[in-house]
Design a protein around this nucleic acid. Structure first.
Length: 413
DNA sequence: TCTGGGGTCCTAGGACCC
DNA sequence: TCTGGGGTCCTAGGACCC
């Protein structure tokens, strides 16, 4: 019988912010941005949740519900650093740790009894080690499947530990709302309610054929989940087997919608450069490029193109992105632009010797540029011709968008 | 309510091939 | 040309997660 831990950090972003600013402790805190900004809540403290604030809620709504809350901009680097600290602690409890997101992890604890004791004892030791070494609280769910471990950590919140004994899965899940099952969101919940299915137990009692008829493949998975099974896909994978990403994307919502090409083009270039850079970091090449356009009325369009060879070169990707943009943009004001790379491969695929040589030289040049950007900031080198002299992107390192130390801004290759 | 940004997985239709 | 059927690739969109 397997023993799996699901470790979930409590109000992670809020807790990290409180490490840096203890005056936030005990107060309603909203992480995600300022109340007058476009954006949504990334995390809310328990004090703010009392007023109905929750993650994914528009910031403006959160402000109406809880104007006395302190609104904090998210600082992803901080969260990544803290996440790594947590990961290091977890690594001492099992060689098989998988960060499922920035604030949650699965641990394969099967066969660790001799080293760490029985599951509950190990969980208490882990909880204490995390608290002591990161000053952050977490909740831990223990079960024989990923699914039940995850649901039980959720039930254990905040700051708790919950073990579901093998054989007790159905009894544990039965009384819970269907919404507690990972993968059941607003839409599926509504569809299930329409059929009179409200509790996981209702789901478990149903015939698999009925669920398959109503929901297709998803219905079968649902039947398994209602019984606590890790049926299908990622759930069945071994814990801690790192896989390559399947896609890499960046998108940005403008503070105000714009139809100004002098704003749209440079953003496309910057998003593409960020995507290309991450492709190189992973050693991956993209065969499909996708543009995302969102207009003022929130209508959203994606347009993709598959290349004849995979690439990680900024200019090749940008040429495609720009072409997609100009073929599809209606000229109306744009709310959001996004660049997405998919069909990722480990090499460019078949190429002539000449092309290969060109590609190698590109890779070397771009990798050198990546190092420059590490040193001097994202804005120090740009391939975006559209940016020349007209547009200075503001960056973290260079908040005023001014030319700084190091190489001249907007240097072209 | 006036709706971010990074992902994953699934569906469905059409093109194309055998 | 009135026309089958399966497999695979490509594209667009949507549900869902944190």
């Amino acid at each position: 019988m397997k023993t799996i831990f699901h470790v979930d950090m409590d109000a992670f972003f809020v807790s990290v912010e409180r490490l840096f600013d203890p005056s936030l402790i005990g107060k309603p805190v909203v992480v995600g941005g300022q109340p007058n900004e476009r954006g949504v809540v990334s995390a809310a403290s328990y004090e703010a949740r009392k007023y109905g604030v929750h993650s994914a809620m528009p910031l403006r709504t959160a402000y109406k519900l809880c104007p006395q809350a302190t609104f904090v901009n998210g600082r992803p680097e901080r969260y990544r650093d803290c996440s790594k600290d947590v990961f290091r602690v977890l690594g001492r409890f099992s060689p098989r740790v998988e960060m499922a997101s920035i604030d949650e992890a699965y641990l394969e604890m099967t066969g660790t009894q001799r080293l760490h004791g029985r599951p509950l004892a190990a969980a208490h030791a882990l909880h204490e080690a995390v608290r002591r070494e990161t000053r952050l609280n977490c909740s831990i769910g223990i079960a024989a499947s990923r699914l039940v471990a995850k649901v039980s950590s959720d039930q254990a919140k905040p700051n708790g530990i919950l073990l579901v004994l093998p054989g007790q899965e159905a009894a544990f899940l039965g009384p819970l709302d269907v919404r507690r099952i990972p993968g059941v969101g607003k839409v599926t919940e509504k569809n299930l309610h329409a059929l009179g299915i409200r509790k996981v137990g209702d789901l478990a009692r149903l015939d698999e054929d009925f669920l398959e008829e109503k929901f297709g493949k998803w219905g079968l998975a649902l039947a398994g989940k209602s019984r606590g099974l890790d049926a299908g896909g990622w759930y069945d994978a071994e814990i801690g087997e790192a896989e390559d990403p399947k896609s890499i994307s960046h998108e940005h919502t403008f503070g105000e919608d714009t139809a100004d090409v002098e704003a749209l083009e440079p953003l496309l270039a910057r998003l593409t450069e960020m995507v290309a850079r991450r492709l190189r970091e992973h050693g991956l090449f993209a065969r499909t490029v996708q543009l995302k356009l969102r207009y003022s009325d929130f209508s959203t369009y994606t347009r993709a193109h598959t290349l004849d060879h995979a690439t990680q070169v900024d200019t090749e990707l940008l040429a495609e992105v720009r072409s997609l943009f100009h073929r599809n943009w209606t000229g109306r004001p744009v709310r959001l632009l996004g660049v997405h790379a998919g069909a990722l491969e480990h090499s460019e695929g078949q190429m002539s010797l000449l092309e290969q040589d060109k590609s190698d030289r590109w890779r070397k040049a771009l990798t050198a540029i990546d190092r420059l950007r590490d040193k001097y900031g994202e804005s120090s080198v740009s391939l975006a011709a559209g940016m020349k002299g007209r547009f200075r992107e503001r960056t973290h390192e260079n908040p005023a968008g001014l030319p700084g130390k190091g190489p001249k801004p907007d240097q072209e290759l």
